[in-house]
């Protein structure tokens, strides 16, 4: 049964108002999908955290808390990985120009947005930004499943 499904790619899409009120719903949705896809509990936590951070950045920085705006969350699942694409339609930014947070030297001035991106990179296997100014900004978050023997 599993072998037949091995190369099947599933796609899910969620469009949601850009409000922090929806973060819990977003995390619940992602956790449920990751659970059904048999990621382990630590990986499920990591994926939900990364998606929370990406959505929080879109709500705060791309839309300045304007809840009339929309965030698209697209999930691609296949036998060995989960890829989540979080897209906003606000002004873009240059991810290369974001300084690494230095909490040792400037705790007060560390930008929380920078912390979020730093966390995403720590908990996911791949993080890729697709910035098209005036059109859309997408963050691709990729997590590979652990090999079966490790689970």
């Amino acid at each position: 049964m599993r072998k037949n499904k091995k190369n099947k790619k599933q796609r899910f899409k969620l469009q949601i108002a850009a409000s922090t009120d929806n973060l819990q719903t977003i995390r619940d949705f992602i956790q449920r999908l990751a659970g059904e896809a048999h990621f382990d509990s630590e990986q499920i936590d990591q994926i939900a955290l990364a998606v929370d951070e990406a959505c929080t950045n879109a709500i705060k920085h791309a839309y300045q808390y304007d809840a009339s705006k929309k965030i698209d969350i697209e999930i691609w699942l296949d036998s060995d990985k989960m890829e989540i694409v979080v897209t906003d339609y606000g002004p873009g930014f240059d991810p290369e120009k974001l300084p690494e947070p230095d909490i040792n030297h400037s705790m007060k001035n560390a930008k929380v947005g920078g912390l979020g991106i730093h966390l995403m990179k720590k908990v996911m296997d791949e993080v890729r930004f697709e910035i098209r100014p005036g059109q859309k900004n997408a963050v691709h978050l990729i997590k590979f499943k652990k090999p079966e023997k490790e689970q």
């Binding site: 929080t56 705790m107 929380v112 912390l115």
Partner: peptide, 16 residues
């Protein structure tokens, strides 16, 4: 049960 960087940012804002 859960904390994201927004929660961590609060500690950084107050600790100094």
């Amino acid at each position: 049960d859960y904390i994201s960087s927004a929660g961590l940012g609060v500690f950084m804002g107050f600790i100094e």
